[in-house]
Amino acid sequence: MTLSAQYLSLAGRLEAASCALEKGGITAICGPNGAGKSSLLQILAGLLETDAGEVTLDGESLASLESRAKRLGYLPQAPEIAWDVTVRSVVELGRIPHRDAATAPVEAAIAAMDLAGYESRRAQALSGGEQARVLLARVLAGEPEWILADEPLAALDIGHQQALIGHLKREARAGRGVVLVLHDLAMAMNHADRVLVLDEGRLVADAGPAEALSSERIAEVWGVETRWLGEEGARALAHA
């Protein structure tokens, strides 16, 4: 059960690389601004065409895969809700690939994102953090095998960050694949099972978090001298 991208390249943004991701864990994509993180995520989601190579899901090419939308849930970085629709309407959009109006997955997603009582509120009127949860609930309502999210923690306060990452971890333990673009390196260090580091379009590391996000690598890629504090699972990054 793998999502793999081979020899992908995107003119001017990403160099050819190859990676094969496994379900059952959290994979973080890290790198400085402009490194190509969001592009890589969109390629994995089948939304960006590469110059060459292909993205495959369990050996089948994503480009021709009918069930892609059911199996991959994608959450972009910039939240957009065009009309003044209710929270429930937004979450229900997650069922579009299934062409059904199943209520159980919608209720489960609303509960999982701590949105009970918000169902009939207007999504546009919610705070940024609340909207982020609504939009993630939309992804969960589609019950995808893979969750591909671009900076899902960016707009959240620390409490909701912990709750969300805890929830994504549970989803991963339950056998889903979770791929997150993360700016917060401590989040990636503490919660990811695997980290891909991108630097100016090159994939410079693909390893466990301790190796991929070593102080030496951070100095090399981000150009900042840092050291890790604390114990495994609860590390914090300090300027050296």
Binding site: Y74, I81, W83, V85, L93
Partner: peptide, 9 residues
Amino acid sequence: TLGEPVARS
């Protein structure tokens, strides 16, 4: 409603 990339996904 959720933008073009989401619609495509």
